[in-house]
Design a protein around this nucleic acid. Structure first.
Length: 788
DNA sequence: GAGTTTGAAACT
DNA sequence: CAGTTTCAAACTC
């Protein structure tokens, strides 16, 4: 089984990762030899795409770690978090969708709970109550909601659950044997273990729910999971489906939380060699509502702290990062979870907060806000202030601004839990579209980037780190945004730029709204301090840090989304002239002078943002957006106004964005259209130049490698006593002798009146002989001699 | 690297 | 809204 380690996965660009699950879903059932003729029509149904999200709202892959315990813990954590968030929820359901649509939703038993308990060795059932560790053999048996009676389950490890008339759902633990989790469709009263051995008697459609592990689950992996259940043969004869868990959560509403298991879809036989990359495993926790496109939540890990809470999306893709940093305990590495969400729909809400450890944490120091006092936890020396650990859904309010690409969350005091319905917040989650993501951890750091649907159709699995345990510890909450209405600010919330920071003293309530990359910038800034001061082991620190985008730096993320440092002089980087400011980023590693685009000038920055928004409410919205229906996917929202460049230079924003000019442009003499020969020529030249650059880069790399290798090999001879570098043998005397030999050869050629070509050949041959003699002499003595 | 050109942003 | 100015990036030499 070829399993890529999460450490490698984390290095993969999000764009790549994003495409995994859905690509897999596109595999037509007909391609599956084993599926043909055995699969039920519903099982063969095409995988729902974005437009089908009614059936497959969300895909959730839980955890991604290497160890079964970590995976299960991650799952447990996730479930716990959800349930915690939805404290008012009366029921929690696990739904199996989509093609399995015929089957009734699975409900975590009991319906009112969403925690995992270990009922028997090797079997884990979902029950209410506190979380319990999963047994060694991780099997989760889920009851089918309103489904066929006569539940059949397995009690003993290594067995799979087969429902008499229902479907079998297997939750695999990333291809590791003995870790499969079986979601049992049979319903009521069924207890695990009762149905052991029935699997063979009732060929069913297996839905493989992958929890934890890699996203590139392959049939082999499934087979292993099945093998652990001692039912390989049976499964091979059955249609196997992969099921992903989709989670739908509601923050403030009293509605039930539903875990929707969407099919990941692999109708192919277990023995098929086709890739089952569509099985999202481990690292992804995606949520969505049935009426919206799939969201993805990426679980990732960082070990850094930031001083501010950032809630705002990136420009493109829009990412909203909410960082939750809680008090840390030595030996308990801080974990971070980044949850990219697909937010094409309205009502998205993200929420999670961050606290800081050693960073300035201006938010914490906000006096004018109703924030609670910072909870300071002293842990073995360094103090960590827990600022925004989320605990319950009642503590989080969604502030949804219609038409805004910014998603805000209001955090209410932890003790009240009655923040719903407060003025100024659109946190009524009665709508299915509202999908708050709440992270309930004290030691879990979560970032929740939101990615627009058009930019992300796929679950973006991000691996937990090797130590990816998720700890669920409730801590005291802090307010990011005031629970009171924000009459002055809210009108602008719709268009707040990524990076809006409303600092105390600016007449606002003292909160900060930052874009995702702001947070990462801060995280990176605080990373060293945190890591060094805390003394925490950080096996993934480098990895995490490498992924942090930083303006002007060549981190992996920055490499994928590079941006030049600005050179502003007069604008103080507080005008849209400044790309950093316009992109909602802090200036960092820029060449600007008199820069105010930083945390030290929050007040000025806030004013500047407000001024920009006053001039243009959409000043901070992406200029390159989705075009009208039938038009190109990407187009400039305003259009360019070029007059001299012909729209074929980077002066033109359309050309710079590598898009065609559209009807919205007011350019003169535009040559940036599809059929433009000038444009085509430029494109070809650009492509050729790019190829050349790549080749040059490759050549340089190779040359550097060779030189390095040469020195590596020759250095020992130097240091090992008397050895000399090869070129040291070409002394002045040797060179002169060689030249004499060549001149002699030339004279001879001239004497015999050889043509020039022959003469040159003779000289070259002589030169070759000289070199050979040099080489030969070098091997014998330190003073080679050249004799013609 | 300095100077010029360009067009978006800012201003009037 | 149109014209002008300011600004920083893109470009040229």
């Amino acid at each position: 089984m070829d399993v890529v380690s999460p450490e490698l996965n984390i290095l993969l660009p999000d764009e790549i990762m994003d495409t995994e699950a859905i690509v897999m879903d596109d595999d037509p059932p007909a391609e599956s030899p084993t599926a043909s003729g055995q699969s039920q029509p519903s099982d063969d149904a095409p995988i729902p795409m974005e437009t089908d999200v009614l059936a497959v709202p969300e895909i959730v892959s839980l955890c991604s770690d290497a160890t079964p315990t970590q995976r299960t813990q991650a799952l447990t954590t996730s479930i716990t978090t959800d349930s915690t968030l939805c404290s008012t929820t009366s029921a929690t359901q696990l739904l199996l969708t989509p093609s399995i649509a015929s089957s009734s939703p699975l409900t975590l038993r009991p319906a009112t709970a969403s925690t995992l308990t270990s009922t028997s060795p090797g079997v884990v059932s979902l029950t209410s109550g506190g979380l319990q560790k999963l047994s060694a053999n991780h099997q989760i048996i889920l009851n089918k909601v309103a489904s066929s009676p006569g539940a059949d389950t397995t009690r003993s490890p290594g067995t799979t659950t087969i429902t008499p008339g229902g479907q079998k759902f297997m939750v695999t633990a990333i291809g590791k044997s003995g870790q499969s989790i079986v979601l049992q469709l049979p319903h009521t009263g069924s207890k695990p273990g009762s149905g052991q051995g029935e699997a063979k008697a009732h060929p069913q459609h297996f839905k493989v729910l992958t929890i934890g592990g890699r996203t590139d689950l392959k049939p082999v992996m499934v087979g292993q999971a099945v093998s652990s259940a001692s039912q390989v043969s049976t499964l091979q004869a059955q249609q196997l489906k992969t099921v992903q868990i989709a989670k739908k959560t509601q923050v403030s509403s009293a509605g039930p939380i539903k875990f929707i298991i969407t099919k990941a879809v692999n109708n192919k036989g277990l023995t098929a060699q086709t890739s089952v990359s569509n099985v999202i495993t481990g690292r992804v926790l995606s949520t969505s509502s049935p009426v919206t496109s799939p969201r993805t939540i990426t679980l990732s890990e960082t070990l850094s702290s930031s001083s501010k809470i950032a809630i705002s999306p990136l420009k493109s893709p829009s990412k909203l990062t909410v960082v939750s940093v809680a008090s840390q305990v030595p030996n308990s590495p801080q974990k971070s979870v980044s949850l990219p969400l697909n937010m094409a729909h309205l009502g998205q809400q993200i929420l999670v907060q961050q606290s800081t450890a050693t960073s300035p944490a201006k938010v914490v120091s906000s006096h004018s806000t109703p924030m609670k006092p910072v909870q300071t936890v002293t842990v073995g020396g360094p103090q960590f202030k827990t600022i925004f650990p989320l605990s319950t859904s009642s503590n989080v309010q969604q502030i949804q601004v219609p038409g805004s690409r910014f998603h805000y969350v209001r955090l209410v005091t932890a003790t009240t839990g009655s923040s719903t319905g407060q003025a100024g917040s659109h946190c009524t989650n009665s709508s299915m579209t509202a999908k708050p993501m709440v992270v309930n951890t004290a030691q879990v750091r979560m970032s929740v980037p939101i990615i627009p649907a058009q930019t992300m159709k796929q679950v973006v699995p991000k691996p937990l780190t090797s130590s990816g345990q998720l700890l669920t510890t409730q801590t005291q909450q802090r307010l990011i945004m005031p629970a009171t209405p924000l009459p002055q600010i809210q009108p602008n919330l719709t268009n707040l730029p990524p990076g809006t920071v409303l600092a105390p003293g600016s007449g606002n309530m003292g909160y900060a709204v930052l874009p995702a990359h702001y947070v990462t910038q801060l995280q990176q800034s605080a990373y060293v301090t945190l890591a060094s001061s805390s003394g925490f082991p950080n096996p993934t620190g480098i990895q995490t840090q490498a992924r942090l985008p930083l303006n002007g730096l060549s981190t992996s993320d920055a490499a994928s989304r590079p941006r030049k440092p600005c050179n502003c002089n007069k604008s103080q980087c507080l005008k849209l002239y400044c790309d950093c400011f316009a992109n909602g980023e802090f200036c960092q590693n820029c060449n600007c002078t008199n820069c105010f685009n930083n945390l030290e000038h929050e007040t000025e920055r806030a004013k500047a943002i407000k001024a920009c928004l006053d001039r243009n409410p959409e000043a901070f919205k992406p200029k390159i957006g989705k075009g009208k229906e039938g038009e190109s996917d990407r187009r400039h929202s305003k259009g360019c106004n070029c007059k001299r460049s012909g729209c074929l230079k980077n002066y033109c924003e359309c050309y710079e964005a590598k898009i065609m000019c559209s009807s919205t442009c007011k350019c003169v003499g535009c040559k940036n259209f599809e059929e433009s020969p000038e444009r085509k020529t430029l494109m070809h030249l650009a492509d050729a130049a790019e190829v050349r650059v790549q080749q040059q880069t490759a050549a340089k790399t190779k040359l550097s490698s060779q030189i390095s290798d040469l020195f590596t090999r020759t250095t020992p001879s130097i240091t090992s006593g008397g050895g000399r570098m090869p070129f040291t043998f070409v002394t002045k005397e040797v060179a002169e002798a060689t030249c004499e030999c060549l001149l002699e050869q030339a004279e001879q050629a001239e004497l015999i009146q050889q043509p020039q070509a022959t003469a040159e050949r003779m000289i070259l041959e002589e030169f070759g002989r000289c070199l050979m003699r040099i080489i030969s002499s070098a091997g014998k003595t330190d003073c080679p001699s050249i004799n013609c």
